[in-house]
């Protein structure tokens, strides 16, 4: 039952993608349907449903957080670059994340690369090494905040659900 639901959901998402890529052209909808079904079947074979489920409300919260941090990141770097004297103190900082591996850790590393002051340089196990543009401006609190938002978005499926 769960597998059917995953398949239908994935198929609908792919069909939406087709619709977006063809800019809503109605002449391509039938061909799109055939291709969507084929891709859905192949992708379910290659990438079985993830162990995580996305919580929609937390995902909206994460998106808003990400957008605000993007604006902060862009203006921060622009501000530093436009000062007559370059205002940077580059260096590395290492944090240990409590997030589970794969998806969540990957999302955390990429989010931190796009938000103020940090680029993820190395992700080894639970150890995330960040390159900071200004080492004094990167705080553990910011890291924990982003980490908590990523964690809130993923809910682990029960073993029962995964196996079905």
């Amino acid at each position: 039952m769960e597998a059917v639901r995953d398949g239908v959901f994935r198929g609908l998402a792919l069909y939406l993608l087709w619709w977006v890529l063809t800019e809503g052209d109605s002449s391509g909808l039938t061909a799109g349907l055939v291709i969507t079904v084929a891709i859905t079947l192949i992708s379910l074979g290659l990438f079985p449903a993830s162990r995580y489920r996305i919580r929609p409300v937390a995902a909206v919260g994460f998106t808003v957080h990400f957008l605000l941090r993007s604006v902060a990141g862009g203006t921060d770097v622009a501000h530093r670059l436009l000062k007559p004297r370059l205002d940077i103190k580059p260096g590395y900082r290492t944090f240990y994340t409590t997030l589970p591996k794969n998806g969540p850790r990957w999302l955390l590393a990429n989010t931190l690369s796009l938000t103020p002051g940090t680029i993820s340089a190395n992700l080894k196990g639970d150890c995330l090494e960040l390159h900071c543009l200004d080492i004094t401006a990167v705080t553990e609190d910011d890291f924990r905040d982003t980490e908590a938002r990523v964690a809130a978005m993923f809910s682990q499926r029960s073993r029962h659900e995964v196996e079905q």
Partner: peptide, 24 residues
């Protein structure tokens, strides 16, 4: 972001300018 390519001293700091400024 492009200005950052000229002003910043090394590869990794330049990445900061490119990723953040271009994203926004």
């Amino acid at each position: 972001g492009t200005l950052g390519l000229f002003r910043l001293p090394d590869a990794v700091t330049r990445l900061h300018a490119l990723t953040k400024a271009d994203n926004l």
